[in-house]
Simulated scan of single mutants.
Amino acid sequence: MQTAESSASTPSAQKLADLYRYWGRRQTPGDDPGMDLLRDLYDGWSQFAVEAEGVSFTTVDDDGVKGIWALPASPQKGAILYIHGGGYIGGSANGHRKLAAHIAKAANVPALVLDYRLAPEHPFPAALEDSVSAFEWLIGLGHDPATLAVVGDSAGGALATAVALHRKDNGLALPAAIATLSPFYDITATGRTFDTNAGKDAIASDRSTISGLHALLLGEGITPENPYLNALKADLAGLPPVHIAFGGDETLLSGGEDFAELATTKGVDVELVVYPGQQHVFQMLAGVDSDADDSIRRIGEFVRRHIGA
């Protein structure tokens, strides 16, 4: 594990924490705000990042795959499948397009920012099915899996890992690399940082925040022990290299640490970088916070290194 030098005291970092606390106030326990409001709140993630200069966007709606291409000006060979976060119940390609654009620029390859079906209307494994289909769609465009990376934040980080696990379990060619930003590996909220970081994490301050999602996202016959939902219960042997970035104040941090340890013991090449004092998916501060920019730079270098771009 690497501990990055952090600038978490910057005003931009505090604004992200304030946004998360605002979300919490709008989601008072026992007061159902409705899914439309929740999703509007999650799309507020996009307000901080600046636009990635030189990256353009096109809409995708083809063969059941929906999303947005983030296209660097002069991309090299390869592509990224970017899977957004939002607890499986929110988030969108549009709300994450600026973050994905910065990563696409750093890696200098196009990124498909996927819109997948959300729970509770479409409980898990619908999100995984859509993510797997999108990866196949990229192959159908002519991309060799060895030139593809799967990247995601929060629930999208867990889905990015699950895409590779699903392909491995089915004997299919794997992506060249997986990069995850604050991945939602600890779906059971049993990790030790739920105790040590309870007073620091502004979005998931206690276990009830996570356990409350289960009734919304679990499809018939699916439990929190499902290995495609809970990578800590999966056989990680044979996965491609994995980069994991976390904020040091996250309650989900120990899930990333445990995943890194489990994967490493199975022979997987894992990079885990922790930014002290930072919040969940702090990379949403792209262009306005030095930690976010450093993390995105590292992810871009990691992707380029493994896809040969």
Results as ranks from 00 to 15, higher is better:
A73Q: 15
S6F: 01
D40T: 13
G156F: 02
S12Y: 07
Q27N: 12
D206Y: 11
D206L: 05
D130K: 11
Q76I: 05
I244V: 14
R192V: 10
S295E: 06
S56Q: 14
L213A: 02
G90R: 00
D291W: 03
G157Y: 12
Q14W: 07
S208P: 00
P224G: 10
G212W: 15
G256D: 03
A4L: 15
L159D: 02
A127P: 09
E51M: 11
A176W: 03
V268E: 02
K77P: 01
G277R: 12
F124H: 12
A158C: 13
S295V: 03
D206K: 09
A179V: 11
L252Y: 10
P11Y: 10
D144W: 08
G30S: 09
D258I: 09
F246C: 13
L172G: 01
G256K: 05
R207T: 13
E261Y: 05
A13T: 01
G86C: 08
D195E: 15
L232A: 12
E250A: 02
L81S: 00
D289C: 11
A93Q: 13
N94M: 02
F124G: 01
Q76N: 15
Y185A: 04
G287W: 10
G30A: 12
R97H: 07
K266D: 12
K66R: 15
Q283P: 09
R167S: 03
G277D: 12
Y20C: 13
V303C: 06
S9W: 11
Y88G: 02
P11H: 12
T209W: 10
H84M: 06
S12W: 08
I103M: 13
E53N: 12
S131P: 03
G86S: 08
E250P: 06
S154G: 14
H306Q: 13
H102R: 14
